[in-house]
Design a protein around this nucleic acid. Structure first.
Lengths: 240, 240
DNA sequence: CCCGCCTGCGTGATCATGTCACAGACGCCC
DNA sequence: GGGCGTCTGTGACATGATCACGCAGGCGGG
């Protein structure tokens, strides 16, 4: 399902066909607008890379090569359990950076999670040395990194809360509402299961229950929301 | 079980009987050894507070008053679910600081968790303004905060892994091994349940199973480990 | 000493979820 | 049409959470 793409070093040594010209990508990255001129100058020269959907940026055990900033697309970071079950920890979207990476750069610890692009994704890698220099010398950059860190931590706590204390039904309804595009969600049940931290069979049964209540219609690779209101009410009901 | 102690503002406005003399507590805090002289000077004057066991430092919804550094004792931070079930997120021990607090100070977000002292605990509170100033001007302080942050994030990911992918039996065995004092663990089954993120009844049944295998003996408010080796093997078996 | 009460513990019943095994359905390519 | 891989549906079962009790030990008041 997720095609291998360059293995462990994908983000560090990508095939050249995915390298882009060195350009002023900073202009298109609002999150970095607050950076001062010298910092911008040091960043502007870095090459950006385009990764196809399904590329593996890192796996558990990999060493951390540099600090990634996402320009466009989306990277999903998963925790993998013994039985092969996966749990989406968080997603990295444009202007954001990867906490696991920050963690690795600051503490020398290898990755314990797996990162896969969910769409075609453009990233800029900041090498370790430059990252550390910026952290020390560029207050705005530091703010940026710290803010990202804080946001993730908050997100992780929320995730823990949902996974530990909320029913699968609630999580599923919530996820469906949050991913509907014109009353339609394009995803296989296995994908949904991973996203909400459950198992495919369970998703299948819950969706079936929703369908019997007339809230959704299931198709191969998609779910149609026929009563988004009901789903939303369930999602907000905090049901344990 | 956890006596209320001054409520929301406990750490900000403690009863005066718990205030101590202003002293050079920095001398006894190895974690802060790397701080430069000016920073140490700014910190040395802060008062330390002593909180009894069971004091509530903050609850969900409280505003963040300042940055806490633990000198001695132990603070436990919990997530609370709908049914009143609680899950230990992490503990703050001497020389460490509270991430939730950092998060709140940086992002203005209120607490979503609950912090309770597990023993008599000495803390120093750094007011918000000083905290921000130090973050900007004292690289060593910044390093300290960042390192703590990174460590917590790693811990949270590990916790997520254990809670999501490991059996209660493994977690229980592991916890017992980690908390044995001379082959004996002093804790009620309800406490153990909270620590490993399960329910009291489940702990009761698992302990019973251990007892039938001759690995432990249960007493009122305590567990005696009669075969620590077996428990340790189970704890390390990564059983899903 | 007896009683009432609180806390901690044990247990059965039931529900929610995760896991395993397997079969049918759908799409696609040859 | 036939073969193959992916997606989905289902039954059987194990684990864990929740609910509803009852029982035991400890403690203070009478």
């Amino acid at each position: 399902m997720t095609q291998e793409y360059g293995g462990a070093g994908a983000c560090a040594r990508p095939p050249s066909r995915y390298n882009r010209r060195m350009t002023d990508w900073l202009l298109h990255t609002p999150a970095l607008d607050t950076l001062d001129a010298p910092t911008r100058a040091r960043l502007a020269g870095l090459p950006q890379q385009t990764l196809p959907r399904g590329a593996v940026l890192f796996r558990p055990g990999d060493a951390v090569e540099g600090f990634a900033i996402v320009l466009s697309g989306r990277i999903e970071v998963f925790l993998t359990g013994a039985g092969g079950r996966e749990l989406l920890l968080y997603a990295v979207e444009p202007g954001q950076s990867c906490v696991q990476t920050t963690l690795g750069l600051l503490g020398e610890a290898p990755y314990s999670t797996e990162a896969i692009t969910a769409q075609e994704t453009e990233v800029v890698m900041i090498p370790r040395a430059l990252f550390r220099a910026l952290m020390d010398s560029a207050p705005a950059f530091r703010q940026l990194v710290f803010a990202a860190f804080a946001e993730r931590m908050g997100g992780m706590i929320q995730l823990m809360e949902r996974v530990s204390f909320q029913s699968v039904e609630c999580r599923l309804a919530s996820w469906l509402c949050g991913h509907a595009d014109g009353g339609r969600v394009q995803a296989t049940q296995a994908e949904i299961a991973t996203q909400i931290g459950s198992a495919r069979e369970v998703v299948s049964r819950r969706l079936d229950a929703f369908a019997r209540r007339g809230w959704v219609q299931t198709e191969r690779g998609a779910v149609v929301l026929t009563d988004p209101g009901a789903l939303r009410r369930l999602a907000l009901s905090e049901g344990g």
